[in-house]
Amino acid sequence: MTEDYIQLQNRIVELEAKVARLETTLLLMPDVYRFQHLQKLLAAGDFREADQETIRVMLSITGAESLETITPNDVRAFPCNQLQAIDKLWTTYSQGKFGFSVQGQMYQEVGGSIDTTIAQDNSVIEKLGLLNGWRLNNKWQKCDELDYTLNAPKGCHPSRWWNSPFGSKMTNYFFNRLITCEIST
């Protein structure tokens, strides 16, 4: 190989990386200001703070004041494109390890479906919790006890969003929304 050819190959790799970054940024175009801080946190690998920021973003989308005031109806009406944007950021910056689509896919792998969300089948959620690190020794872990690095189990994050006063009922509603929006496939 000639040196010119090697330089050309290196330039192509650089351009591909720039295109990938641009594609991720363009994903945010519908609401760039809403997602910009989340993107920066995830790009920096600050998954703990990104988890908190995910809640802030979701609150701004629903117009709710706090996680405790988001209702199942809010979840049912959550815009699919907004969920896709949040998910794309998480999956991109976690190398495909975290994100709503990862969680939704895992939910389906342990037997979850539209039917189990409607039936409010908590056994499926418990199976998922064992698989993604949310449950240990038959107990739900507190979010502060979770690992916020890439060493965390697959599908562990975002995790704080799932802490709702509606409990597993809200979890079932949210998985229903992920499946309906085709984010878990």
Rank of each mutant, 00 (worst) to 15 (best):
M1I: 07
E3H: 05
D4P: 00
D4I: 13
I6A: 12
Q7S: 11
Q7T: 02
L8R: 14
Q9K: 15
Q9M: 10
L15D: 02
E16I: 09
R21F: 08
R21V: 12
R21Y: 04
E23V: 13
T24Y: 00
T25P: 01
L26R: 11
V32K: 10
R34V: 14
F35I: 14
Q39W: 06
Q39I: 03
K40D: 11
L42Q: 07
L42Y: 02
D46M: 04
D46T: 08
F47G: 04
F47V: 00
R48T: 06
D51V: 08
D51A: 11
D51W: 01
E53N: 11
E53S: 13
T54R: 00
I55Y: 04
R56W: 12
S60K: 13
G63I: 11
E65I: 14
L67D: 02
E68V: 01
T69R: 12
I70N: 02
I70C: 05
T71M: 00
N73R: 11
D74L: 12
V75E: 07
R76P: 01
F78V: 06
F78D: 06
P79W: 13
N81D: 15
L83H: 06
Q84E: 13
Q84R: 13
I86F: 08
L89W: 00
T91C: 04
T92D: 03
Y93R: 01
S94K: 12
Q95F: 00
K97N: 06
K97M: 03
G99K: 08
F100D: 01
F100W: 07
V102P: 03
V102L: 09
M106D: 04
Q108K: 13
E109G: 04
G111N: 02
G111E: 09
T117D: 05
A119G: 07
Q120F: 10
N122H: 06
S123P: 02
V124L: 04
I125Y: 03
I125G: 02
L130K: 11
L130R: 10
L131W: 06
N132C: 02
N137A: 15
N138P: 05
W140T: 11
Q141C: 06
D144L: 01
D144F: 03
Y148H: 15
T149P: 11
T149N: 14
A152W: 12
A152P: 01
K154Y: 11
G155W: 07
C156V: 07
P158A: 14
P158C: 15
S159R: 08
R160F: 12
W162Y: 06
N163G: 01
S164F: 09
S164C: 10
F166Y: 09
F166H: 03
K169H: 02
K169G: 01
T171N: 07
F174R: 00
F174E: 00
F175L: 08
R177A: 08
R177K: 12
L178N: 00
T180W: 03
C181F: 04
C181G: 05
I183A: 10
